[in-house]
Nucleic acid binder design. Structure first.
Length: 496
RNA sequence: GACGAUGUAGCUCAGCUGGUAGAGCAGCGGCCUUUUAAGCCGUUUGUCGUGGGUUCGAUUCCCACCAUCGUCACCA
């Protein structure tokens, strides 16, 4: 639908005619640059002095409202900082120029030069002495009007908003704010990690073998090498190779790709922060998680209290830590570790899950059980710790319980947002875990991890004790911007 | 992937039990040199999501498909 030449509707024809008319009048419709002295908010903030000094200010922006009154005109222009009213008067600009201004439309970019004044109704405005067209709009913009906080004719069609984000951003200022906050969050993450001595690195997105998570990958093909490559599902295995290589602390913020369903908390490509620290264990990562989230809260919210979808959450560390099996056992009223695979499947069926104990591995069965009975109740913030070994092929065996691994997940608002463990660095144990994954794969689990021989070699070379953490950046942004859908925190979300 | 809801002018929406569509804003013309959802007068705009079918006739009924939203399944 997008690649068809759109039929020229009346509105667009009229704008093209205006463009032609402007050119006849000698107006350059798409000039090369415009020197600004101020932004809209600069002017609004310094209005008093600027008005007194009658200093000439130049600013540029997009026309968002035009109120023409015969021989004068009020209009609003919008720049990346905000909006400001301009006042164009025939007397001030001359008749020829005023006729040109009348050919301008909502959506045009203009540059204006003039002095600052305040209107009778108290709005800080620019009295325009001179204006130029900077770019002509020939495709009408949706007109959003507002009075006393109430919005009229909002541009609200989700499909159009996501597919034509450029319009969404022009017309819905709160959308711009969400993405500005997103960038601030990532910046804060970087400085937080940098301050702790972590080195930011980049690892391959195109990988000959995928790993580091349980997920289905996207497959692509390299023509010259004549082989298939995978888009990474996690950074993990490469970052650990770097720990083997001797970097003590590394992190990466980047996109992962998982070939799975989409909903309001899942986009096929999403952003993860992954970090690895040598000589630390998973308790270190809990501290990092708490510290990072608390830092975000104080810088973004100015308070440890987060409101998400009407509910309040206190993010002040430390957060409670609940053991995986304590939660599960309490929820089902039995000791899950004593149950057979079939019995776990039966418990799952009580929650309406149909699972085949023969085909699904024990780890996954337990995970289902957790997802069905525990997860929805985890308001958080909290950590769930010490997961079953079968579920975590890259995590180190628990120091005091052979059937568990030293792993935690962080929860907030009933949703997981991070995952961490004491990294498995025993190459022989790791090989066994891969082999167990291989058996699951043969049994039909297409999310089981393939064996990565080179990664095993790296572990054989020797990885120090290491802690690793992965944080879902999109989800954190959702919390801190109070957005309901992941699509509202990704500029160009995947559409069908 | 399953079920449900929705899809009408550039935008937001109305359209009862089938007779080829309306409003506000935007646009266009006119009046208006401090307006601000500017106002007043006049006026234009539509493959009624797409493709089939039923019918003399479908935006309205039926089927399929596409898209969006929601719930579930899968996962972060």
């Amino acid at each position: 639908m997008q690649n068809q030449e759109p039929t020229l509707h009346e509105l667009q024809k009229i704008r093209r005619e205006k463009l032609a008319k402007l050119r006849e009048l000698g107006v350059e419709a798409f000039p090369y640059r415009y020197g600004r002295t101020h932004s809209s908010t600069n002017v609004l903030n310094q209005a008093e002095e600027l008005e007194k000094s009658e200093e000439q200010v130049s600013l540029a922006g997009r026309l968002m409202a035009i109120r023409l009154m015969g021989k004068s005109c009020f209009a609003h222009i919008q720049d990346s900082a905000g909006r400001i009213q301009i006042y164009v008067k025939k007397d001030a600009v001359g008749e020829d120029q005023f006729d040109i201004f009348k050919l301008f439309d909502i959506g045009d970019h203009v540059g204006v030069r003039g002095t600052v004044f305040v209107t009778h109704s108290g709005e800080i405005s620019i009295r325009v002495a001179e204006f130029v067209l900077l770019s002509k709009n020939i495709h009408p913009l949706p007109i959003v009007k507002e009075k006393e906080g109430e919005v009229y004719d909002a541009f609200s069609d989700k499909e159009l908003r996501y597919r034509q984000r450029y319009i969404d951003l022009v017309v819905n200022p709160e959308v711009r704010k969400v993405f500005e906050t997103r960038t601030r969050i990532v910046t804060i993450m970087r400085s937080y990690m940098d301050a702790l001595g972590f080195l930011e690195v980049e690892t391959p997105i195109l990988q000959p073998l995928y790993g580091g998570a349980l997920a289905k990958p996207f497959v692509t093909h390299h023509n010259v090498l004549e082989k298939d490559l995978y888009l990474r599902i996690a950074d993990e295995l490469y970052l650990k190779r770097l720990i083997v290589g001797g970097f003590d602390r590394v992190y990466e913020i980047g996109k992962d790709f998982r070939n799975e369903g989409m909903d309001r908390s899942h986009n096929p490509e999403f952003t993860m922060l992954e970090l690895y620290a040598a000589y630390e264990d998973y308790t270190f990562c809990m501290t990092i998680t708490e510290g990072l989230v608390a830092a975000l809260a104080s810088e973004i919210l100015g308070s440890p209290e987060l409101t998400y979808e009407g509910k309040k959450y206190d993010l002040t560390p430390p957060w409670p830590r609940y053991k995986f099996f304590d939660l599960v056992n309490e929820a089902i009223g039995k000791d899950a570790r004593e149950l057979t695979d079939q019995q776990i499947a039966d418990e799952c069926s009580k929650a309406g899950l149909k699972l085949d104990a023969g085909k699904t591995g024990r780890g996954k069965l337990l995970d289902k059980l957790f997802g069905a009975f525990v997860e929805p109740k985890l308001d958080g913030p909290c950590f769930v710790i010490d997961y079953p070994k079968e579920l975590s092929p890259l995590a180190k065996r628990h120091r005091s319980d052979d059937g568990l691994v030293e792993r935690f997940e962080g929860f907030l608002a009933g949703r997981e947002f991070c995952n961490s463990f004491s990294e498995l660095n025993d190459p022989l144990d790791q090989r066994e875990r891969f082999e167990a994954q291989g058996l699951l794969r043969e049994a039909g689990d297409d999310e089981a991890q393939p064996l990565d021989e080179d990664f095993l070699t790296a572990l054989e070379i020797g990885m120090p004790p290491t802690a690793g953490l992965g944080v879902g950046v999109d989800r954190l942004v959702m919390y801190f911007t109070d957005q309901h859908s992941i699509r509202d925190v990704i500029l160009f979300p995947q559409m069908r």
